[in-house]
Design a protein around this nucleic acid. Structure first.
Length: 190
DNA sequence: CGTCTTTGACCAGCGC
DNA sequence: GCGCTGGTCAAAGACG
């Protein structure tokens, strides 16, 4: 996991991560509907839709043009539903290219993008992330390494460009930052 | 049989 | 209008 930002228009979240997998598990199920080689990047971009019929969230995943270790995941929309029950895994359940099967990497974390399922105070806070960032939080860009699953990163709506500014070597630090930000902005103690 | 990926075709937006 | 590019559709096939 490398970085994240969100553009203010159309609830777009851009996450850059260092990941071997082409489709890292973010807790939701995705259906691939297209793949295309885009200009300026020799690596193909894959297009995914959320398999939830009521959910219109899309994402596209592409390898970095300069460094194929970097995976750029763009979420177009925010999940307004709970993550589906695990069916072994998500769309990466197939073992093609060893992608996110149920391979339990030691550093896998069951963090999700979108609305968290439970109703604890923590999830109440997290539920604020996707749709109503008010006041806006400067959660923009994180660098995380060692992630095989995508974390739930709230990001700043004011940013329109993926811009990486900070490096956080351990994913747990991210949650500390998130918690601190929630505490700061919402007065929530998680 | 259901789910998912692959892949070529198609469409829309944009610049010239 | 034309060509380029990004995004989407849908048929076919693979897989468990």
């Amino acid at each position: 996991m490398i970085g994240a930002t969100r553009s203010c228009k159309s609830q777009r979240v851009i996450i850059q991560l260092e990941c071997e997998e082409n489709n890292p598990d973010d807790g939701f199920r995705w259906r691939k509907y297209g793949q295309k080689v885009v200009h300026g990047n020799p690596n193909p971009r894959s297009y995914y839709k959320c398999t939830n019929t009521a959910c219109t969230v899309k994402k596209h995943v592409e390898r970095g043009a300069e460094n194929v270790k970097f995976l750029l995941v763009t979420y177009d929309g925010i999940h307004e539903h709970d993550p589906p029950a695990a069916r072994g895994s998500t769309s990466g359940q197939k073992s093609q290219d060893g992608s996110s099967t149920s391979q339990d990497h030691n550093n896998h974390r069951t963090v999700r993008l979108g609305r968290p399922p439970s109703s604890s105070s923590a999830s109440q806070a997290l539920r604020l992330f996707p749709c109503s960032l008010d006041p806006p939080m400067d959660m923009t860009p994180f660098y995380i390494t060692g992630f095989a699953k995508l974390p739930s990163l709230p990001v700043n709506q004011n940013h329109t460009e993926p811009k990486i500014e900070r490096v956080i070597p351990d994913g747990t630090e991210v949650f500390k930052v998130i918690r601190d930000r929630l505490n700061l902005n919402f007065g929530l103690s998680l």
